[in-house]
Design a protein around this nucleic acid. Structure first.
Lengths: 352, 352
DNA sequence: CACGTAAGCGCAATCGATTGCATAACCAGT
DNA sequence: ACTGGTTATGCAATCGATTGCGCTTACGTG
């Protein structure tokens, strides 16, 4: 406890009540409404001499506005909600960090809610955020299969929202170009001379695997390679699932027909493939080239550095916030698609 | 846009104004204050027949309380702030998820703020949270070296807080038993017959590396092994740093004196060691046993599954919230320490 | 010099929930 | 029937910032 400094405002009470706008007003000899206007950067008055003096007083007595009071009166919290499946997923975590930073740049705050990948939790968490009076939502949990209850509710209640990272094929979305990413990965392997290229594709309800598969098919078609459907496998996003699917793929196939390359829906799955390959005694990249997706920090540092497709999460996050802001301001919105980049590393090499 | 459904409450105005307590009161034929009491679960009246009827009405017209108004009047937001270094760090992300869930169980909300490991950002982010009127803070950014500006300010302004995961050696903290964890890891390697055990220890400003090193020293002393200080190296927490330090450690040493085992401050660092070993042609676990820390999901799925020390993040997170709640309620607080567990996997085996 | 216009600023209402105080209703005990 | 004691509920003030309305002042122009 520092020795009690003589507070400039000579109030007797020793209590540490948080100063309010009225305190600033009294101290500056103006009305509270003037203080309010002085503090509001969007107001031209806030750049006048009086405003400067008021801000100086505010600074001195340690005033900061009470957001509850402002939200109540303004009927807007300057806060948006972000719904993600989980933060322990590196991609989601980075996406959220970018969204939060973009918000700060726009003078907004962000609240996260987590669904743990349970589809029913989306609506629950979304409503929880709406109860907190958020001005809009960013959803990173969109699915292609069922129309989301939450999205329907948002549309019905006319609440602004934006989809990020994944799309439901309808709403305004900020996403990576999965078709291009899938194409780049496949094309990379084709250029290295591979002809038997497997795809571990992820679940069909997510837009990303679907787009990436399309890109894969396009690249193969372009190169005159017929797609062997046995080499295209669905999976979950996890390492476990990747390992399991890869084990099936690599073991249950006559030696000659075994793929010489695998591309996966994400880096986690690729790690699973590495584990499976090691267990089966298949060397990477000697006998099997491998390409992941997302270029998570892990990819570059794996014992065998992983070729991966880098997704511009920063742009996707900022794009989602931009869409949402336009929507909040009542302007028309359009989806945005950002191009990924292939990062070649040691896990992919020329076909044997 | 779905066709406008006739809202149950027969108000004429087509606008979709959010119903307020006054609406519920009118509909139920009581005063707003009665509605307030009926909704407050801590109030005995909320379990009466009238209360049930009021809640039914609230449900029907789709009322949910406006938290801004409640916070303003109550002078408490029922929200706590959580300061972490980054969410893209798996351990921090899980910790935050657990804290958020613990909060929900207590009817609280959680707000995250991110410092990106910049010491100066802690105070900035903390103040931002305080400006939002959070009722308390959980800090996962404690350092041993400098006394934190933020902690000093919290103490001075008498604002409840709890440290999580890391401690500054002073404030109330909820942490894992790093001394025990370090001991378990070292003991495991000693039991496998290793005598030359290196430690990549992490930076000295964080409490965890320091504790783990202590445990390491205790285990070695107990086994009658003199600590070779050349084998104890500081590092950052990153994979990059792990790889660099491991490269120095493993290459700049006469063959006979090279360690037969390495334990690291976390799994990331261990991945870096794997990369370094592979580059130097040292096989794991054949020539070098490796033990990580934190048991991140990655550890089990690495090409060579990593022996690691599992930290009870759930308990640590909940413990931090418990401490904070007690502090908010004005009760005395005490630090809590939770025991970790060693999870043996393939990366550690008998000494050559 | 008078008048029009705009900027500066005060007044008071307002946002929606909570809570101290007061009144009314009700119950049991004697 | 009366009294002391709950319990249910209404009334009105309150939390702190915002904002429409309108008065005052300053400045520029013909």
């Amino acid at each position: 406890m520092t020795a009690s400094e003589g507070k400039a405002s000579g109030r007797a009470q020793g209590a540490k009540r948080r100063p309010t706008m009225a305190d600033v007003a009294r101290e500056a000899g103006v009305n509270a409404s003037t203080v309010s206007r002085a503090m509001d950067e969007r107001h031209p008055f806030s750049r006048s001499a009086t405003a400067a003096r008021i801000k100086e007083v505010a600074q001195r007595i340690g005033y900061s506005p009470n957001p509850a009071a402002a939200s109540l009166r303004r009927q807007s919290t300057r806060t948006i909600g972000v719904v993600v499946s989980r933060l322990s997923d590196g991609v989601m975590a980075i996406l959220y960090e970018e969204i939060a930073e973009a918000c700060r740049d726009h003078g907004l705050h962000a609240l996260v809610a987590i669904t743990h990948d349970e589809p029913a939790a989306e609506a629950v968490q979304g409503r929880l955020l709406l109860d907190r009076m958020v001005d809009g939502l960013v959803l990173a949990t969109a699915r292609l299969d069922s129309e989301s209850d939450l999205v329907r509710e948002l549309a019905a209640r006319d609440i602004p929202y934006a989809l990020a990272l994944r799309t439901d094929g309808r709403g305004p979305a900020s996403v990576g170009d999965d078709k291009l990413g899938g194409y780049l990965a496949a094309r990379h392997l084709i250029d290295l001379g591979h002809r038997r290229i497997a795809l571990i594709a992820g679940p069909p309800y997510a837009s990303n695997p679907v787009g990436r598969m399309e890109g894969y098919r396009t690249a193969l078609r372009e190169a005159g390679i017929a797609v062997d459907e046995r080499l295209v496998r669905p999976s979950e996003f996890s390492m476990e699932s990747g390992e399991q699917v890869a084990t099936e793929l690599l073991s249950a196939m006559p030696a000659g027909e075994r793929p010489t390359a695998v591309m996966t829906v994400n880096d986690n799955t690729a790690v699973g493939v590495m584990a499976a390959a090691r267990r089966l005694g298949i060397s990477i990249p000697g006998e099997l080239s491998l390409v992941g997706y997302n270029d998570t920090p892990l990819a570059a540092r794996l014992p065998i550095p992983l070729t991966s497709v880098r997704v511009p999460l920063r742009e996707i996050g900022r794009g989602a916030v931009d869409i949402l802001l336009r929507s909040i301001e009542g302007k028309p919105t359009a989806s945005a698609v950002y191009a990924p980049t292939l990062i070649p590393r040691e896990s992919s090499t020329s076909a044997p």
